[in-house]
Simulated scan of single mutants.
Amino acid sequence: MCFHWIRKHINAEIRHLVHEIQRLDLEIHQIEGQIVTLQAQVQHQQEQIDQLQEQVSTGLTTNPELYDYFVHKIGQEVRVDTTSVILTGIVLTVAVDAVELRESGGDIVIIPFAKISSAQ
């Protein structure tokens, strides 16, 4: 009789441990998913940091708003104000960090976005 009670108790304990192992396995799987997500976020942030360091070291900055503005103005005349000069010309091409204009006199100028204070 005592043997039967011990065996029943051991089987119950084994079932409990199996359930705990399954629960912990599920938690491990969820944590692994969170780790993958966090690693992707860290990689994305590192890429942003690298891009910002590049911009700081070269002095050339990207500006999506200026880029979009000038892309829509290709072939049209614009006025660009910088800290030292006001330029007017036809937008020839746009890079991720600068715009190229042809002034009325025929001169071609490249203006880095970092130097632009306003554009019309």
Rank of each mutant, 00 (worst) to 15 (best):
T37F: 07
R23K: 14
E27V: 04
I49P: 01
Q41D: 05
D97L: 06
E27N: 13
V91K: 03
T58W: 13
V78A: 05
I74D: 00
H72N: 13
G33N: 09
L52W: 08
T82E: 02
T82H: 09
H44V: 02
V71G: 00
T82N: 07
F70D: 02
Q46Y: 09
S84W: 11
T82F: 06
I90G: 00
I31F: 03
T93E: 03
V85R: 15
D68A: 14
T58K: 13
L24N: 12
V71D: 02
L92Y: 00
A98F: 10
I86M: 14
L101I: 07
L26A: 03
V56H: 04
Q51C: 03
D97I: 13
I28C: 10
Y67P: 00
H72S: 14
T88H: 11
Q55P: 05
Q55G: 02
V96Y: 11
E100I: 14
P64Q: 13
E47S: 09
D25Q: 12
E32G: 03
V91I: 10
T62K: 15
I74P: 00
V78G: 03
L52E: 00
V96N: 12
I35V: 09
P64T: 08
D81E: 12
I49L: 14
L101P: 02
T88S: 10
R23L: 05
Q48G: 04
T82W: 14
E77N: 13
V94L: 09
I86Y: 01
Q53P: 00
Q43A: 11
E47T: 11
Q34A: 06
L52Q: 11
V71H: 05
Q53W: 11
Q45W: 12
E65A: 14
D25V: 00
K73F: 04
T58R: 09
Y67E: 06
D68R: 15
V80Q: 02
